[in-house]
Amino acid sequence: MKYIVIIVDGASGWPVESLGGKTALDAAATPNLDQMARRATVGMTSTVPEGMEPSSACACMSVLGYNPRVFYKGRAAIEAKSLGISVEDDEVVFRANLVTLNDGKMSSYAAGHISSAESAAIIETLNEKLGAADRSFFPGVGYRHILKLKGHADTLNAACTPPHDIADQPVAEYLPQGDSNSLLRSIMADSEPILKDHPVNAARIARGEKPATGIWLFWGCGPLPDMPSFKDRYGINSALTSGVDLLRGLAQMQGMDILDIPGVTDNIDNNYRGQMAGALKALDDYDLVVVHVEAPDEAAHSGDTAGKVKALEDIDREMISQIRDYKKDKLRVLVMPDHPTPLAIRTHAAEPVPFMIWGSGVRITGARRFTEAEAQKTEMTVTEGHYLMSMVVRG
């Protein structure tokens, strides 16, 4: 038996008036997913334990078969691991987004989706101007980067807000709060004059693109906990493909190999067909491959209704069609979002999501399509999402 796990990041959501009261998943034309759903176990599950943050880090950990209550200690260190950044006992790390602030408002949580190459040049400058023995910046993918602090564990007491939670809102009341906020606030403020006249920003403005006006710090945490490997836990070899550091970091924590597939990105320009073709080819060497697709989540964070629907339709046409045509081995597939990203709020929600287990030996639960409403109708509920992996690989 071979296994594919497809994480359609942020695919789930709420009804949208402009879509006739449908969710993006319901409005999208997904004939391949729908045909699979009619011969699959379809239901609902919770990937974010009560009281925990509805981040992709927490939710994807659930999808990968690990209980976030036990193993989740923070997101930034997971991304740091994917970048090869060590975090010692006296060190903490923060996610450092390049953002666009305009008249005191969060104009773009992603600096207009700045490229990795442009970001790397900016992060190099920030290290030259702001770096010190107790602080270093590390470039990541696109707008997502890491700040490491040494000897400042107190900064973890500051309350920080993710920038995608405050799109188009005034930022003053969302700056790091609490008694330990001063260092974080000063780093954020000091970044702004450095970036104001940066050559990368001058070029972006000339092209009519949003500049990176500053750095935004959040999701701080210390070193990672030990985690049993996926092989030890489930008895099979595994690999993952993703365009974001977070998923690659989670995979490394679990001893999964990382697939290097050309054209895999963190946005709607993703090479959907190539990513799935590479994943299926990898089944020659692995028992299970995880395919993480970020595009629907990014579209939802941007409030792009049409973009989210299109991403779901592209995934169905370019990726899911290949799954249905796979003939080499017996195959079992898990398809699901990690969390909802409702277009109305442009951030994550801690609500149940639909899941589908399709393939050899699965029970048919009567869904007609792969949508939130159809999943709810089956009355099939898995209370905690981390149990799904066992259902997939152990039947």
Rank of each mutant, 00 (worst) to 15 (best):
H164Q: 14
S107L: 14
E91M: 11
D179E: 15
L195S: 02
L184K: 08
I146K: 06
N102R: 15
Y174N: 14
E88F: 05
I166Y: 07
G104I: 08
A172N: 07
A133P: 00
V99K: 03
A133V: 07
S136K: 15
S119M: 02
D168Q: 14
L156K: 07
E124T: 10
K150W: 04
S107D: 14
V141E: 12
A110F: 04
S116G: 11
K81V: 00
R144A: 06
G131F: 10
A158S: 10
I166E: 12
L130I: 08
D179A: 14
E192M: 13
N157S: 13
S86V: 05
G131Y: 14
G140N: 13
A96D: 11
S82T: 08
D168G: 01
L195N: 04
S107W: 04
A111V: 10
I122C: 03
T125H: 03
I146T: 09
A132N: 14
R144D: 04
I114F: 05
P170W: 02
P170S: 04
G178N: 09
E88A: 13
A167Y: 10
H113G: 00
H198T: 11
D190P: 00
G131I: 12
S82Q: 13
V141H: 10
A133S: 13
V141W: 05
L130H: 08
I194A: 08
N157A: 11
S182R: 14
H164G: 03
A167L: 14
S116V: 05
A167H: 12
K150H: 12
L101S: 02
A153T: 14
L195D: 01
S191H: 09
L175P: 00
A189D: 13
P199W: 00
V93T: 10
N127Y: 12
L149G: 02
I187H: 04
L130E: 05
Y109D: 01
A96Q: 11
A132Q: 13
N157F: 02
I166M: 07
H145Y: 07
K81M: 12
G142P: 02
D179N: 09
T100I: 01
Y174S: 06
G151Q: 14
S116C: 08
E173K: 13
T125G: 00
N97H: 08
G178A: 10
Y143N: 04
S108R: 10
S191L: 05
D168R: 12
L126D: 09
K196Q: 11
A172C: 01
E192I: 08
D197C: 03
K148V: 05
E124W: 00
L98Q: 08
K129E: 15
L149E: 03
R144V: 06
K81D: 00
N127P: 03
I123L: 12
L183A: 04
D168C: 02
T125C: 05
D165C: 08
D89P: 00
Q177D: 11
A121V: 10
L183P: 05
S136L: 09
